[in-house]
């Protein structure tokens, strides 16, 4: 029996209320993940379509994400206290407790993007946004894939997220250098270019959070912790 198939165990818990609690954790995490993806997309549209009202919506939307974080934490604590979950259930709950934090931070990054977008929208555009939407798309893809990996308990997809993070970092460096060029040519662009650099950094952070989620999915399914392989090699 491979441990991976056991994580997707179709067998139901004898205790139906416990089963329902676990399902609720999964469903709430998915709802939160969907909401977070939506927030990133909206915040980027606020920038590229110069739509500050949409940016305001993103800020409001963050409240729901925060509420979901608290809800999921509560539910997980309740399950830990009342059910003493073991094996794949325990791994699901510890994973949930960790990935809500990443999802909530991704939500915060979307708010940051929206704030910068609103600032940028009040001045003429610096240049057409070409690479920046690509960076955003890649970051969103990473989040989406990490969440898919969670839903399907699929470590292969999670591994793909880990491998693709370098592409995101490369694109970040490319855009950063471009923006640096603007600033060196014309000091009047510095304020706007810096805002754009910040947005790139937010997107790059979103990619990092997606990576954290993916790492936890691998733990949830396989029970092996793949985080920080290099620091692990150093004896304590």
């Amino acid at each position: 029996m491979s441990p991976e198939s056991s994580a997707k165990s179709p067998a139901a818990h004898t205790d139906k209320a416990f089963e329902a609690d676990l399902r609720e954790v999964r469903e709430k995490l998915l709802a939160m993940g969907g909401k977070v993806e939506d927030q990133i997309a909206k915040s980027m549209r606020a920038l590229t379509e110069r739509d500050s009202a949409l940016g305001e919506q993103v800020m409001e939307g963050d409240l729901e994400i925060n509420r979901l974080e608290v809800d999921i934490d509560d539910l997980c604590r309740k399950i830990l206290a009342l059910r003493q979950p073991a094996a794949s259930d325990l791994r699901l709950i510890t994973t949930a407790l960790k990935i809500v934090t990443d999802l909530e931070r991704i939500g915060d990054e979307a708010v940051n993007i929206a704030e910068r977008a609103i600032e940028l929208n009040s001045a003429p555009a610096l240049a057409p946004y070409v690479d920046l939407p690509r960076l955003a798309e890649q970051a969103q893809d990473q989040v989406k894939m990490a969440l898919d990996a969670f839903v399907r308990a699929d470590p292969a997809t999670a591994e793909e997220v880990l491998q693709k993070d370098d592409q995101l970092d490369d694109l970040f460096v490319k855009i950063f250098n471009e923006l640096l060029g603007f600033m060196m040519e014309d000091a009047r662009t510095i304020r706007r270019a810096t805002a754009l650099v910040s947005i790139c950094k937010y997107l790059e952070r979103i990619g990092d959070h997606a990576m954290n989620v993916a790492e936890m999915v691998i733990y949830m399914v396989r029970g092996t912790d793949v985080r920080h392989p290099r620091s692990r090699a150093i004896p304590a």
């Binding site: 029996m1 198939s5 165990s9 259930d89 325990l90």
Partner: peptide
């Protein structure tokens, strides 16, 4: 936390 056998998994998770 991570049993190898499906029957163990089913038992410890109830």
């Amino acid at each position: 936390t991570n049993p190898k056998e499906r029957r163990t998994e089913d038992y410890v998770t109830g």
